[in-house]
């Protein structure tokens, strides 16, 4: 099983990973405190644009990545719409009670979930873990000890997925793929964990055998710096937010500014 999908490098890939992380975190926080659904819808649309046109992945994959989050969007929005409280009743049908307030809150919540998901996707699709950790070491002075441990861990994920499949086949052949969830868990967990723990220890020893812990003047293979792409990124994000607010006040979708 391979996890590598071909993609084209875009300016989002060229942005400094640490900087990108910090900007995205601030947008994340900002979204938490936006109470105007119009702003949120505009922002989500903007992020959606970035996601579909500037991550450099083929459309087929993008749609696939997006699908689970779209389901989350629909389910959060609809459950709040159907079951939320409100005073201006639109539809009442058994347990379902749609009010004007619950509808707006539902929309708001849905778009909030969507923008969180898009922020996460944008970041993870355009950031190689290796660059992120190099950048964290260089810009935020994260200790190499932690950075490289994470990187070694990232390398183990595809190996574990492969092993999971092997265990699945082996259990099938032995007729041991039935039984309760606890029993099944144990059957998978024991071989997978014991294998991973041993492998992790061996990798750790191999790393130390390459003088990892003795390194005093560590140099870096990748020099991750700041470039004009970071400026472009910051301007884009600020522009996006500004535009969202401006459009929300000039061309609002709904005639309200606070869902609380």
């Amino acid at each position: 099983m391979r996890l590598d999908i071909r993609y084209r490098e875009t300016w989002l890939h060229q942005t400094n990973p640490t900087f990108k992380l910090l900007v995205m975190l601030s947008v994340f926080l900002l979204v938490l405190f936006v109470h105007n659904p119009n702003v949120l819808i505009n922002l989500s649309l903007g992020l959606l644009l970035l996601f579909f046109f500037y991550t450099g992945y083929p459309m087929k994959h993008l749609v696939l990545f997006f699908l689970p989050f779209f389901v989350i969007f629909v389910s959060t929005a609809s459950s709040m719409t159907f079951f939320g409280q409100g005073t201006t009743t639109w539809v009442r049908w058994g347990l379902v009670h749609i009010t004007k307030e619950s509808f707006f809150r539902g929309m708001h919540l849905g778009f909030r979930a969507l923008s969180f998901a898009l922020l996460g996707l944008l970041f993870s699709l355009t950031t190689r873990p290796v660059y992120l950790f190099y950048s964290l070491m260089q810009q935020l002075k994260v200790k190499p000890k932690y950075a490289y441990s994470f990187l070694a861990g990232v390398r183990l994920i595809p190996v574990m997925l492969e092993e999971f499949q092997t265990v699945q086949n082996a259990l099938k052949v032995r007729g041991a793929d039935e039984g309760g969830p606890v029993k099944k868990m144990k059957r998978y967990a024991v071989p997978l964990l014991s294998q991973s723990i041993r492998r992790a220890q061996r990798i750790a020893i191999a790393m130390e055998a390459k003088r990892f812990s003795e390194a005093k003047n560590r140099t870096f293979y990748y020099q991750i710096g700041v470039s004009r792409y970071d400026v472009i990124f910051l301007v884009t994000m600020i522009g996006l937010i500004g535009l969202s607010y401006y459009m929300a006040s000039v061309f609002p979708y709904f005639p309200l500014t606070d869902v609380r």
């Binding site: 290796v130 490289y148 990187l151 070694a152 990232v154 390398r155 990798i203 191999a206 790393m207 390459k210 003088r211 990892f212 003795e214 390194a215 005093k216 003047n217 560590r218 140099t219 870096f220 293979y221």
Partner: peptide, 17 residues
Amino acid sequence: CMPFVDEEIAFALENIG
């Protein structure tokens, strides 16, 4: 500990500066 051939060799080179 690294995903690519060059990065793996570079890891050793980095360690000795």
